[in-house]
């Protein structure tokens, strides 16, 4: 359900970015968002929401690309750094639970592919 409310903010941001471009592009081909794995966003739901929210706007017919960013950890004990499996945030090298997590909460508009 929360895909829809986040999608509105995606479309608002896209329209704002496009209107700031000079010269104005002919059309938007695709937009890419980056979503941290922690966000629990389902890419297919988000794409469906995108279709619904863009209907009747200047970007109707464009595609939404959803790129997932893994949760990353850095171990305070042994210095290991890398991607973490969902739901088990222990150091993958020494097993310590003293990890600093990063990346899992990313949610940003990354790229717009336009036709000039």
């Amino acid at each position: 359900m929360h895909e829809l409310s986040i999608c509105q903010s995606i479309v608002d941001s896209i329209l704002e970015e496009l209107s700031a471009l000079d010269p104005k592009p002919k059309r938007l081909i695709s937009a890419r968002i980056v979503v941290g794995e922690f966000r629990q966003i389902v890419p297919d739901f988000m794409k469906e929401a995108y279709k619904a929210v863009t209907k009747g706007t200047d970007v109707e017919g464009s595609e939404l690309e959803v790129k997932t960013a893994p949760i990353q950890g850095k171990c305070g004990d042994c210095g290991w750094a890398g991607d973490l499996p969902m739901g088990d945030f222990k150091c993958q090298s020494c097993g310590s639970s003293g990890l600093k997590l990063d990346g899992g909460m990313s949610l940003y508009l990354d790229n717009l592919e336009i036709e000039k």
């Binding site: 986040i6 471009l21 592009p25 949610l107 940003y108 990354d110 790229n111 717009l112």
Partner: peptide
Amino acid sequence: MTKANVRVYKDLMGENE
């Protein structure tokens, strides 16, 4: 058709934040 990529890096939770 001339295509171009525009890099954005815009936070999408900005309004809520």
